[in-house]
């Protein structure tokens, strides 16, 4: 049994606020530099030699702590900073300032080490090998993550069953429907027993039944003790899968707490999470 699993098992036994912090983010900022195009011919040419920039604050002082086994929903409008946060936590983007730690390491300094213990799934992209049978993608990742033959087989078979993709294993990825592809991608994300999983809109474009399957799967993974960080515009996903929600707006955290607390804040105790969040935006006059 690997150490990530053992840690998970240990932390699962204790109370939520006593578990080890898995993700710690303090005063995180991330600015993007956008080169401005001039107006008119002369300015366009002169800006080539003397460029001017505009700075966009994608993240503007974000802090939160996520403990082992928590499942957190990350809510925000388009451009709020959700994907930027995920990229920083995965180590593919360097923060402008602030502190980040995932499972005790700074992700961008130890990208490869971090990569072994986290899983990333982006609903808009696939990590399946486009023209080979799905099985080959599993084999490849099993090798890349240095899984032993037994671990690999056990994990693969468990995920194949949980996501009901047994019939798809011999089909090339390019012939799968979006729902099938998403399920395969999800299985690949969990193949190496990641302790933390980042999901960026996993159910985007899926039909209601496909979404339900994915939610059920994520709920089951949560029970196994995997820490889940789920960013989605589909608030039904978050309502069902996550306990805690973090609301980000223009690079700042507006709310961080349980779904019940959010309902209490908005005074909307009966509505769906979507209604509650809409009300929150309206009351904060952000919409």
């Amino acid at each position: 049994m690997n150490s990530a699993l053992m840690n998970r098992g240990l932390s699962h036994a204790s109370r939520p606020d006593e578990r080890d912090p898995v993700i710690v983010v303090e005063e995180l900022t991330r600015h993007y530099r956008v080169r401005l195009d001039g107006e008119g011919f002369v300015e366009k040419v002169s800006r080539f030699f003397k460029p001017r920039y505009r700075y966009v604050k994608a993240l503007d002082g974000v802090s939160f702590t996520i403990r082992a086994g928590e499942s957190v929903g990350y809510i925000g409008l388009n451009g709020a900073g959700k994907s930027t946060t995920i990229k920083i936590l995965c180590g593919v983007l360097v923060p402008t300032s602030g502190k980040v730690s995932v499972l005790g390491v700074e992700p961008f300094r130890h990208r490869t080490r971090n990569a072994r213990r986290i899983g990333l799934m982006m609903g808009q992209r696939t990590q399946l090998l486009w023209d080979l049978p799905v099985r080959e993608s599993f084999d490849l990742l099993g090798r890349i993550y240095d899984l032993s033959r037994e671990t690999y087989r056990a994990n693969r078979d468990r995920l194949v069953e949980a996501l009901d993709i047994g019939d798809l294993m011999d089909t090339p990825a390019r012939m799968l429907s979006l729902g099938q592809k998403t399920r395969c991608d999800l299985a690949l994300t969990f193949l190496h027993d990641p302790a933390v999983v980042f999901l960026d809109e996993p159910t985007i474009g899926l039909d209601i039944l496909a979404r339900e399957k994915i939610r059920d799967f994520l709920k089951a993974e949560k029970k196994r003790g995997v820490t889940i960080f789920l960013a989605s515009h589909d608030l039904d996903d978050l309502e069902i899968v996550t306990d805690r929600v973090i609301l980000i707006h223009r690079g700042r955290i507006l709310f961080d707490g349980s779904q019940e607390e959010l309902r209490r804040v908005t005074g909307d105790s009966l509505g769906t999470l979507e209604d509650t969040v809409k009300r929150f935006y309206r009351e904060a006059e952000l919409g």
Partner: peptide
């Protein structure tokens, strides 16, 4: 991004 988030 997916390629960079692999331990390879």
């Amino acid at each position: 991004v997916h390629d960079l988030v692999k331990p390879a």
